[in-house]
């Protein structure tokens, strides 16, 4: 009993379409990565890592921007990770099934996809305005606000994967709940939580919109968190939008470093996680 030709044709068309769609997605990835990495590699020079961002028409590097980005990412991790893990713990352990946990879990998912520019505006309103000036501190806190929901979500998910028998075993030994959580559950979920934090770092490393009105930018070296702080994404934005060729070259170099960082982190973390999971 053969399938009628029309039905077979519809089948073939649909499956050709699915294959084409996948090729379409991969094509954009390849195109974007190829041009960014090729253009960026051509712009790489040793002075990129030793010199400051130059004025128009001069040569220079991105040292201050790398430093500023590193400081703000570190700040965001220091602020966002403990709060995120604590909130994730509440959702998966201490507040499990409570109404608060259900609501927070819901709201957290919305924060996760909320436009990052709005978070920049929010930090501007509550911090920059009251302090009277842009600062690296405000930038770090804005990034922490982007990192927070990611850490909450991954912590909650990794804690839920820990089997209940381990909790029961802990209680059977007479351990109080907080020790069960901190000594058993955290240890079992450790690598998954670290994976989540690393992926969150990869995400905030490229965030530009929340830094535009918080850290702003700084052409010069500054180690103070109380002043505008240079950072890679905003430098790329300003230099790429400028009419100067030297700045375009530096923007490509910055894009190369940023993309390479994000890719290595994403791929590396996933490979490690998969290997750990198979163990």
């Amino acid at each position: 009993m053969a399938v009628p030709a029309r039905r077979r044709a519809a089948d073939v068309v649909a499956f050709a379409f699915a294959s084409l769609a996948t090729a379409f997605g991969l094509f954009w990835l390849a195109w974007i990565l190829w041009t960014t990495l090729a253009q960026g590699a051509a712009a790489l020079t040793p002075s990129l890592f030793t010199q400051m961002t130059p004025p128009p028409g001069a040569s220079g590097g991105l040292l201050n921007a790398f430093y500023g980005s590193a400081v703000m990412i570190l700040l965001a991790v220091l602020i966002g990770t403990p709060i995120g893990i604590a909130a994730g713990t509440y959702l998966a352990e201490h507040g499990r099934y409570s109404r608060l946990a259900v609501i927070v879990s819901f709201i957290n998912d919305i924060l996760l996809s909320a436009p990052s520019i709005v978070i920049g505006l929010f930090i501007y309103e509550v911090m920059v305005r009251s302090m009277g000036h842009f600062s690296g501190l405000a930038g770090g806190i804005a990034l922490a606000m982007i990192l927070l929901p990611i850490v909450v979500r991954t912590t909650e998910e990794s804690l839920r994967l820990v089997p209940d028998q381990m909790r029961e075993a802990g209680f059977a030994l007479g351990m109080p709940r907080w020790r069960v959580t901190s000594r058993i559950i955290y240890r079992a979920a450790q690598s998954a939580i670290v994976t989540g934090v690393l992926l969150a770092v990869a995400r905030i490393a490229g965030e530009t919109a929340p830094l535009l009105f918080t850290a702003l930018n700084n052409q010069f070296w500054s180690a103070s968190l109380n002043e505008p702080l240079a950072n890679v994404p905003v430098v790329i934005f300003q230099y790429a939008m400028s009419p100067y060729d030297e700045w375009h070259t530096l923007a490509w170099a910055g894009a190369f470093v940023l993309t390479a960082f994000v890719l290595v982190l994403n791929v590396g973390v996933r490979i490690l996680a998969r290997r750990g999971g198979n163990k």
């Binding site: 709060i83 995120g84 604590a86 909130a87 713990t89 509440y90 959702l91 352990e93 201490h94 507040g95 608060l100 946990a101 609501i103 927070v104 709201i107 957290n108 919305i110 924060l111 909320a114 709005v118 978070i119 505006l121 929010f122 309103e125 509550v126 606000m145 927070l148 929901p149 909450v152 109080p176 709940r177 907080w178 020790r179 959580t181 901190s182």
Partner: peptide, 28 residues
């Protein structure tokens, strides 16, 4: 006591997530 403290800390962190969203809307 430690249990209560631990519960309180995690609940406060959870509340903070809610507060951040509310504060963002209000500030805007």
């Amino acid at each position: 006591r430690a249990d209560r403290l631990f519960h309180g800390i995690t609940a406060a962190a959870a509340w903070l997530v809610l507060l951040l969203l509310g504060a963002t809307a209000l500030a805007m």
